[in-house]
Design a protein around this nucleic acid. Sequence first.
DNA 1: TATGAATGAGTATTCATTCAT
DNA 2: AATGAATGAATACTCATTCAT
Lengths: 192, 192, 192, 192
Amino acid sequence: MIKKEKITDKKSALLSATLTLVNDHGFHDAPMSKIAKLAGVAPATIYLYFENKQNLINTLYLEVKASFNKFAFNGYHEDMPVKKGFEIIWYNVADYKLNQIKEASFLSQCDNTPMIDEEIRKEGLKHLQPLLDLWEKGKEEGIIKPLSIFVLYSYAIYPLSFLMAMQDRNLYTLDKKVLDETFRAAWDAIKL
Amino acid sequence: MIKKEKITDKKSALLSATLTLVNDHGFHDAPMSKIAKLAGVAPATIYLYFENKQNLINTLYLEVKASFNKFAFNGYHEDMPVKKGFEIIWYNVADYKLNQIKEASFLSQCDNTPMIDEEIRKEGLKHLQPLLDLWEKGKEEGIIKPLSIFVLYSYAIYPLSFLMAMQDRNLYTLDKKVLDETFRAAWDAIKL
Amino acid sequence: MIKKEKITDKKSALLSATLTLVNDHGFHDAPMSKIAKLAGVAPATIYLYFENKQNLINTLYLEVKASFNKFAFNGYHEDMPVKKGFEIIWYNVADYKLNQIKEASFLSQCDNTPMIDEEIRKEGLKHLQPLLDLWEKGKEEGIIKPLSIFVLYSYAIYPLSFLMAMQDRNLYTLDKKVLDETFRAAWDAIKL
Amino acid sequence: MIKKEKITDKKSALLSATLTLVNDHGFHDAPMSKIAKLAGVAPATIYLYFENKQNLINTLYLEVKASFNKFAFNGYHEDMPVKKGFEIIWYNVADYKLNQIKEASFLSQCDNTPMIDEEIRKEGLKHLQPLLDLWEKGKEEGIIKPLSIFVLYSYAIYPLSFLMAMQDRNLYTLDKKVLDETFRAAWDAIKL
DNA sequence: TATGAATGAGTATTCATTCAT
DNA sequence: AATGAATGAATACTCATTCAT
């Protein structure tokens, strides 16, 4: 339907504009007027698609988080061997964080600011479950260290956020070889 | 001297108020008026001690970063064996991040937002050198993986930021035993 | 068009309010809030029509200057005899300065204060050219003293500013007869 | 007396600083703090010598005006012939306006702003009396046009303010020869 | 006499949001 | 659905003035 598409078009233009502005200048310098201008609509139009600024930010957060989670499990099946499954997920995450920098950077900013409502933040996590299940299986099989999922996440996945940030600031660049060594470090950290 | 103390008193009250407000509401909702109120002074008084808001934030960042760096190397000597040295530093960092939550949380927010000038951020890093030197020595001795300092940092130190955040949000708590296991994961990640 | 008129309406209300306030209290005591109030709009509305205060002042200056210049050459033609042409211009200027006191007084204030950007001030002068050309012709014809245009202006036109100021302060009033004598003084000053 | 001198010293340093700042940036950008700094005293010290800012400005105005008036009548005697007397006064004024630019420029700014209290402005005029008397005598003797002193002043003296302003802005410079021609214009304007 | 610290009241400007069209 | 105009409330910052010392 043309009409439906048009609506989606404007809404996603707004979300995209917000992503860009928040990344470039931070939450504190991403006014609605600039968002509207960058999206090519009038300020008042934003309020046809979003209740208010908080809702716009929350929506963007959830959407980006969902895209991230979906990306993470691309090619993964529950019944894969633990290491193989982890490897696939890890490389997916690395791929996302190091290449979809805009989105990854935005998530990083959201995860370290009181700007996002705690409730929304929790909702954004729910799609991560398959990875937690995988680790549970790995622990049962004696392959993964018997650590809390928080600790496992902090060593297996979280470091990539740091490397993404360094790359974003042009302080460091990862090539394929280094990426493999980095995966090795992740695996060493969590494997028994 | 009473006078000097008084000055320091007001200045540090302002820094402390800023720390609290930025942590609680984010940079974008920590107006000078609230900072002044929390510090018990008039808004105009802030400008006796800081040039402007950016300067206040920068100053706070550098001060907190300095206190963190100082804390990190407490009890450490250059001529310690690599693992021992790393252990001391790691536990110091863990101690700081998990107990001085306000400060650690603030640093985390600063490191993931464009609110701090890049120049200032770089200045805040310079005291980390001893750890980088230690890793260099470890690499030469064949104890540490031959990885970039960015990768080593991301696996050895950065995960603690995540655990700190989880603890701050009351989602997780580390006891002594878990902390030791967590150290083990860090060491496994970077050791050869 | 109703819409267009409305815009012009508010913009010119703001210009008019600024003129009044700057005249009454000086540039230093004509805050945006008072300007807005006198114009019957909210302070923020000013910024829909003007970039900032300086731009508002500059715009007003140029507009008033333009109206003055236009008024000055009313009924004047290049091919008039020198004395006749000067007479027409002089009486026009006198008419403006002595009757459009608000505008004239504002220009006087602007011309003696660093509040107007020099660049803008220069722009405001460019419409004076026909008078300068007339004087040039008069010099060639041996009717006007061979003096710099600055000197000619200072004696032919500038004195009216003083008389306007005196009248504005109710210290003096010019009637028709005195005006004619005053013109005679102007002419005596510049004629050969 | 050393003490008295010291007081005068600070007071005149303040007046001089005010003159400089008002000339350079206008009334609206000559804050007490800058005045104090330029005079080499603490802000609070200003209030030992002047009641408030208005009083400081008024005092400065009267002082400069007095110095101007005194300068104007240097070498003049009541019993001189009218033209000779006028010549002396006119050249004195020209000398002051074209050389003591700072002071003259300040007076010009004051004379065109509502910043100076009308009462003070009147007080500043009282020393001009000898010139008015001279013109009165000239009128009686049939040498000067029978015009109001306001008109005479506007043609005889006021033009110099314009020429001073042009010179101050580096748009024009008067040498001795031009000055003589300019005097001629003044005399032609007012003589019968 | 002199001051540095302190501030209440103000200043220009911004911004999320509304509303008539 | 879409918007341009409008604004109340806020924001960072300034300044003339005071006061304890």
